[in-house]
């Protein structure tokens, strides 16, 4: 084939323009919905109420649905630990508004200030509230910091499209401190930072040895279908096996209710291994992606919220890359 090298640079410019066009249209969409809904700004209240987890730990339980203008992106769990020196926050929600409201709730109910914030991974429903904590050290693993640096603004743009006005003034704000795996003592709590992956390229779980509470981030979903948009399923399954070894009293999943047993771990593991095997089989049998999208889902997963929706999203995301591997 006779292709000049010029085409290579054409191609790069092309991709650049496509991305720019895409971003611009997202911005236009975001701005237009912003203008229309501005009147309702005072109603952007997430009505956050934290529930206690044992003694001294609290969690804001989010919806188990997908992002919508109704839930304002409040679909994940954010938690905090009350120590004798101040409050440790784990994940900051989906928007600047969420972060501000969360912070106000914590400060008014505890009378304490916030001394540390952790981000469990780079997904927008877990870190976009960071902006409300700019005066506090925000800590995460290097991989998560890198992911927020590189993808944060794009993910923020996507949420503007999905939840609209709730995102007003929200910007991606990266963690300010890099932590390494291992134990640290904060406010008298022995906190273990656990570096894992699989839900994303870098996931952080936090185990509070003082209270026995495990903050699993999105490595565990409970009664909610696991989101696999950035997943490596094999690695994720390995990470769950690691977490299963911990002797926790309470498990706070990234999405869904708090548990004290292994149920949520087994549920997440079961769905992910089923999904992996099912898509591998589909490829083996020569199914096109549009056929894989229509496969029947086992009855045992009916407890998982938004099962069909999240399954389809997962197939759309995973199948093309599995095909590339299969055909190479």
């Amino acid at each position: 084939m006779n292709i000049s090298n010029n085409l290579s640079s054409f191609r790069q410019i092309h991709t650049y323009y496509i991305r720019r066009l895409f971003k611009t249209s997202l911005l236009v969409l975001a701005l237009s919905s912003f203008n229309v809904q501005l009147i309702n700004a005072s109603e952007l209240d997430y009505k956050l109420v934290a529930e206690p987890v044992g003694k001294g730990t609290y969690v804001f339980i989010g919806s188990t649905k997908y992002f919508s203008k109704q839930n304002g992106g409040n679909i994940a769990n954010a938690a905090y630990i009350v120590t004798n020196r101040g409050v440790i926050v784990i994940d900051t929600g989906s928007s600047y508004q969420y972060g501000k409201q969360m912070r106000a709730y914590i400060e008014s109910t505890t009378g304490l200030s916030i001394i540390k914030v952790f981000n469990t991974h780079h997904h927008p429903d877990h870190f976009l509230g960071n902006q409300a904590f700019k005066d506090v050290p925000i800590a995460s693993l290097q991989g998560i910091v890198n992911a927020i640096d590189s993808q944060g603004e794009a993910l923020n743009g996507n949420l503007y499209t999905l939840v609209g006005d709730w995102m007003k003034e929200t910007e991606a704000y990266s963690p300010t401190e890099v932590v390494t795996p291992g134990k640290v003592t904060i406010g008298g709590h022995e906190i273990e930072i656990i570096a894992l992956d699989g839900h994303t390229d870098s996931d952080m779980a936090i185990y509070d040895h003082t209270t026995g509470v495990l903050f699993a981030g999105d490595l565990i979903f409970h009664d909610r279908t696991p989101a696999v948009a950035s997943a490596n399923i094999q690695n994720w399954l390995n990470s769950i096996s690691q977490l299963q070894k911990l002797d926790y009293k309470y498990l706070i999943a990234g999405h869904g209710p708090v548990t004290t047993d292994q149920h949520a771990m087994l549920q997440t593991h079961d769905y992910l291994s089923w999904l992996h095997d099912t898509l591998e089989n589909a490829l083996d049998e020569g199914l096109d992606i549009s056929e894989a999208l229509q496969l029947e889902l086992p009855e045992r997963f009916s407890a998982l919220d938004i099962l069909h929706e999240e399954y389809k999203r997962g197939v759309l995301q995973l199948y093309p890359s599995m095909e590339q591997a299969f055909f190479n």
């Binding site: 290579s8 991305r19 997202l26 992002f67 794009a154 949420l159 499209t161 948009a229 999203r313 759309l316």
Partner: peptide, 16 residues
């Protein structure tokens, strides 16, 4: 579009 836009991270390889 959601938080799933994969084309963002897609590498440009030597397509020629």
């Amino acid at each position: 579009g959601g938080c799933t836009a994969p084309s963002l991270g897609r590498a440009l390889d030597n397509w020629v």
